[in-house]
């Protein structure tokens, strides 16, 4: 996958969490993932169509997302509940919006579907395109999370 497709998601994730949740995530070294297992306890997944097609998943460890949403709402949340799932859907949507805006500046038009949220230990993530995805690991003071992206240029796909 072209690194140009990954950076907008990396930058978007940092900027959204910094602005909305006052959390500064530190990105680690990206790696390839070939299985469908989520690397977190709650995930938001969103599909894309357009010049680029595919999907992005955000998978948060429980401690990381509890802190992020508590900061967003200005109240302490102690367990993964409806508010957390609601917020993960919205965070996924907003990061997707920021990343797609950055992709637009590269001449790539990408439209997004409505995000879905899955939670539970050891849940799986099914990317629209299947196959290998690129995972960007992040660390926060309260725990890790990952951005898991699987995208392809449509012209390459139709060859």
């Amino acid at each position: 996958m072209d690194v140009r497709f990954i950076n907008p998601f990396l930058e978007g994730t940092i900027s959204v969490l910094k602005t909305m949740a006052f959390v500064e995530p530190k990105p680690g070294k990206p790696y390839l993932k070939n299985d469908g297992l989520a690397r977190g306890d709650v995930s938001g997944i969103i599909g894309f169509t357009g010049t680029l097609s595919g999907s992005m998943a955000l998978s948060f460890s429980e401690n990381a997302i509890l802190k992020i949403v508590s900061n967003m709402l200005g109240e302490e949340i102690r367990e993964i509940n409806g508010d957390i799932e609601d917020a993960v859907g919205e965070i996924t949507n907003i990061i997707s919006g920021v990343a797609r805006k950055k992709l637009e500046s590269l001449g790539l038009t990408v439209l997004a579907a409505i995000p879905t949220v899955v939670s539970g230990k050891g849940h799986s993530i099914k990317h629209v395109l299947g196959g290998t995805s690129v995972v960007i690991p992040f660390e926060t003071k309260d725990g890790p999370f990952v951005v898991d992206v699987c995208m392809s240029e449509m012209k390459q796909k139709t060859k």
């Binding site: 709402l73 508010d83 609601d86 919205e90």
Partner: peptide, 11 residues
């Protein structure tokens, strides 16, 4: 439509 987002914006 997202109750959490209403709460965030309200704050």
């Amino acid at each position: 439509d997202f109750a959490t987002m209403r709460k965030v914006i309200k704050n």
